[in-house]
Simulated assay, not measured.
Amino acid sequence: MEIRQMATAFLSHQEYVLMMKKANSKIFNFEFWGGIGGHLEHEELNFPMKASYREIEEETGFKENEIENFTLKYILIEDGNGEIRQQYVYFGETTHRNFIPSEEGDLFWIHKSELLNLKISKAIRFTIQHYLENPARSNICVGTITVNDEQIPHIQWSTVKQASAF
């Protein structure tokens, strides 16, 4: 079984989040919305934040110094078509709303209240919903996506904390 590691960023400016609308991808063959991101390159496997900043600059033109409070908030794990998908999800704030159009998809600033109305993957839906319900949370959460007996996807959240010596 292979492991696919990805980094995704959600950049906000005031009450809006920068989202990308894609016509299709390797995972979906229909139009969908997502954050900014992609796969980790070999040299980035131990540095997902570096990968995230690279993807942000490639897809939006935002440079690292134009992003504030950029923090790893979630690690998502799911089984996807015979591969384990591990996704590092970051949230940050931009100092302005000017982006450069991307060949990866169309970029739009979407009001936070409209995010869950978009056609997004289950993993991202669970993540955005959790983030919106817990905006002040500082711990990293790990989300494991599974399906119940009726094959309905759900997520189990765990908080990452440093273990005591004993």
Rank of each mutant, 00 (worst) to 15 (best):
E93N: 14
L116V: 02
N81P: 06
R137S: 13
E104M: 12
L76D: 02
V17Q: 00
N134H: 15
I100R: 15
E31M: 06
G34F: 02
A165K: 12
G38P: 11
Q129L: 07
K26L: 12
K50A: 14
H13E: 04
Y74R: 00
F166P: 03
Q162G: 09
I140G: 08
S164L: 13
K50M: 15
I75N: 02
H111V: 01
F108E: 07
G105R: 07
I27G: 04
E41L: 15
Q5A: 06
W33D: 01
E93S: 13
E57R: 15
R137G: 08
W33I: 04
E64C: 06
G35Q: 01
I155A: 04
V147I: 02
K161P: 02
L11G: 04
L76V: 09
G38T: 06
A7Y: 01
N69V: 05
G37K: 07
Q5G: 04
Y53V: 13
I3Y: 06
T71D: 14
D149Q: 09
T8K: 00
I110C: 06
E103N: 13
Y16N: 11
I84V: 10
M20I: 11
I124P: 00
N69P: 10
K22L: 09
D149F: 09
N65T: 05
T71F: 05
Y90G: 06
N29R: 12
E31H: 09
T144R: 11
G37C: 05
S12F: 01
S25Q: 10
H39N: 15
S52G: 09
L115F: 00
H111R: 03
L40R: 04
I128W: 00
F47Y: 15
P48D: 07
E43R: 12
F91T: 00
G80M: 07
N117A: 04
T127V: 05
I3W: 03
F30H: 12
N24Y: 15
E104F: 15
F32S: 14
L116I: 02
E41T: 06
S164K: 14
I128P: 00
F10S: 00
I152T: 14
R4P: 01
L115D: 00
I84D: 03
I3K: 10
Q162D: 05
M1T: 09
I100W: 10
F126S: 06
N148P: 06
E44K: 03
L107I: 11
S164G: 11
K122Y: 13
Q129Y: 05
N117G: 08
H111L: 02
E150T: 09
S113H: 13
N46S: 14
M19S: 08
H154N: 13
A51M: 02
L18T: 11
G82N: 14
K122G: 05
P48G: 15
Y88Q: 01
T60N: 09
R137C: 09
A163M: 13
